[in-house]
Design a binder for these strands. Structure first.
Lengths: 142, 142
DNA sequence: GGTTGACCTTCCCATGATGGGAAGCTTTAG
DNA sequence: CTAAAGCTTCCCATCATGGGAAGGTCAACC
């Protein structure tokens, strides 16, 4: 199988397959006499695995660790779970950060009437010297 | 005020201030005879604004638009609100994407006993040819 | 046999926001 | 006067992905 065929079969682009090889995530494949990369079914499986891990947001470095564990029949599932839990925490942290942004911005936007007049609580909020915060916005006192 | 002082006053690093100038987000500042950038109170305000917008996750290009609107007293608040709403949608999309990842991974991890044995639903899930999905995992049939 | 088009190779560049660090000049404090 | 701190520009790195160029290869069709 040439690289285009594995790419189609695995859902990982040829460009990325070459890249993963270059950074050492994947081992170097066999080559045809003309220098074309040659792949087999097993490589399709591996790339599927990589794609799924990527779809879950794992960074490539951790995908490499997951691949190693996957191929190591002497692994303990605790090692895998540990990686997964760490990534879950990372995802949670990112979600919370984005949610805080969204809530703050939503509060500002809610107070903006969005008409032809220039007065705008959104701009006022951005210009305010204090930290933006998803606070009440009515009764800012106390 | 030199760049270090505005950086400290605004919370935007000197490195970033130079970068924002280079990409045109900020106009070029005055320079001292020695070539040092010179800033005033007004620049501190502007950088505060930029920092707050950045803290809400706005991309720099949109921050530029917000800055223009802020400085345009003939603006309509509708224009600002439109930018904000678009960014809210972007934030929501990202949050949903991350939440889907988290839910799928959490489901896989929940089924992994995390002990010394090699059997691991997380790896099985990643290796599965089907799309990963936050499905039931018990009774995968039907 | 020759041509064409699809496919492969490597290499360089770009994204977006941020930072590290080098080499060299300026200002300030002791 | 000297040393430290601050400034300048320029290059490189991140992370994952892709675009595109220049050139070689393979298969199919006439």
């Amino acid at each position: 199988m040439n690289i285009g065929a594995v790419a189609a079969a695995s859902g990982v682009s040829a460009k990325m397959i070459r890249h993963y090889e270059k950074i050492g995530l994947l081992g170097a494949s066999a080559r045809s006499t003309a220098g074309y990369r040659q792949y087999g079914e097993r490589d399709v499986q591996t790339l599927h695995f990589v794609r799924h891990a990527r779809d879950l947001g794992f960074p490539l470095e951790q995908i490499g660790q997951l691949l190693s564990l996957w191929q190591d029949t002497g692994r303990s599932s605790a090692e895998v779970k540990c990686l997964a839990e760490a990534h879950l925490q990372d995802l949670d942290a990112r979600i919370h950060k984005l949610s805080a942004m969204r809530d703050t911005l939503a509060t500002l936007a809610r107070n903006c009437c969005g008409d032809e007049r220039p007065d705008c609580p959104i701009l006022d909020g951005l210009a305010a010297s204090a930290q933006l915060d998803d606070g009440p916005k009515r009764e800012p006192s106390r």
